[in-house]
């Protein structure tokens, strides 16, 4: 089961603007880019020399902030009433 199908099970109230702020200044020199594989929602993808942030499927766990070796990711929460809504949890 792919991560996309997993995420499609969830209820998200997506806000129009991203709640994730990345300072991409260090991404180029970041060798492993742990955000691209540690994030359980596959929010971060390295495509053609740029870090693409698909914030829509973010489950707001905070892993990205901690694994970024340069501490350049800031997960602010989606505005009140938005983001992941667990029905089971």
């Amino acid at each position: 089961m792919s991560i996309d199908s997993k995420l499609s099970l969830n209820t998200f109230k997506v806000y129009k603007k991203s709640h994730i702020i990345v300072d991409k200044e260090k991404c180029m020199e970041c060798i492993d880019k742990p955000c691209t594989y540690c994030c359980p929602s596959k929010t971060y993808n390295w495509e053609e020399g740029d870090l693409i942030v698909s914030f829509e499927g973010c489950v707001e766990c905070g892993t990205c902030e901690i694994v970024c070796p340069y501490k350049k990711i800031r997960l602010t929460y989606p505005p009140a009433g938005h983001g992941i809504v667990y029905r089971y949890g």
Binding site: M1, S5, L9, N10, P40, C61, Y86, R87, G89
Partner: peptide, 23 residues
């Protein structure tokens, strides 16, 4: 983990309903 031969029989037929993560 879900595809481990000893786990498969325990979860077989289970329909995924939600995926979650937490620190």
């Amino acid at each position: 983990f879900k595809c481990h031969p000893l786990i498969i029989p325990l979860i077989k037929g289970g329909e995924p309903k939600e995926y979650s993560a937490h620190l």
